[in-house]
Simulated scan of single mutants.
Amino acid sequence: MIDTRNEIERRLSVLHGLELSGVNHAADMLTLSFGPLREVTNFKGALKYVGVWALHIQCAWRLEEAGRAVATEDDLRAPDEKAQAGTQRMQEVLLANGRAIVEAVIADDAGGATLFLSRGFWLTVIPDGKADEEDWRFFASGVDAAHLVIKGGAVAPESFD
């Protein structure tokens, strides 16, 4: 049996000390990059920049500072203009004034995780717990290796392929 909390903490421990290098979205999915950025060509042939590690969140999440919400998944589950504005606000607070650095990661048994960042920010990922629906994934960008996939609040079997 997989210990969800320990597996998440073990896999996300590589983020400790790395800077957050990108904040974006694809539809209502929050995409975060960590570590130095490098150029890659996407499947359409366009150049883009990716970090060493990527976190893609499709469930509930909340970015907080000093106990107040800075952004939530609702900012991306909106018309495109609002989603763009929410992403831009997160870029401004987490990247523009000196990039936030991952200081600690704590997971829970329900497939959630909290990333504690420098400058008093923290990001909490809250799985929806819906069976067979992906909550979030974590992976090394551009590397052909298994992703840590959380589905229905648990580590999915494909995380070990």
Rank of each mutant, 00 (worst) to 15 (best):
M1A: 15
F43Q: 14
L76I: 05
R99N: 09
D74Q: 15
G51F: 03
A104Y: 05
N42E: 00
S141C: 11
P36I: 08
A27H: 10
A83F: 03
D3Y: 03
A85L: 09
E9H: 01
D161M: 05
D128R: 11
G152N: 08
G22C: 02
P36W: 06
S141P: 00
N97H: 14
S13Y: 00
I101A: 04
C59S: 13
L94N: 01
A54T: 06
T4N: 08
A71M: 06
T114P: 05
G153Q: 05
P79K: 15
A69W: 10
S159Y: 07
D128M: 09
R77K: 14
A146F: 02
L94K: 06
S118M: 04
V125F: 03
H56W: 11
D75K: 07
S118R: 00
A156V: 02
G142P: 07
V50Y: 04
A27V: 06
I8N: 01
G153I: 01
V40Y: 10
D28Y: 14
L63M: 11
V155K: 00
D132W: 06
R99D: 10
D3N: 15
F138G: 01
V105L: 12
V125S: 04
V70F: 09
I8Y: 00
L123S: 05
F34V: 04
G111N: 04
M90V: 08
G142K: 06
D128P: 06
M1N: 15
I126S: 12
A107W: 01
I106C: 14
V149A: 04
A107E: 03
D128L: 11
E7T: 11
E73S: 12
R99M: 06
T72Q: 01
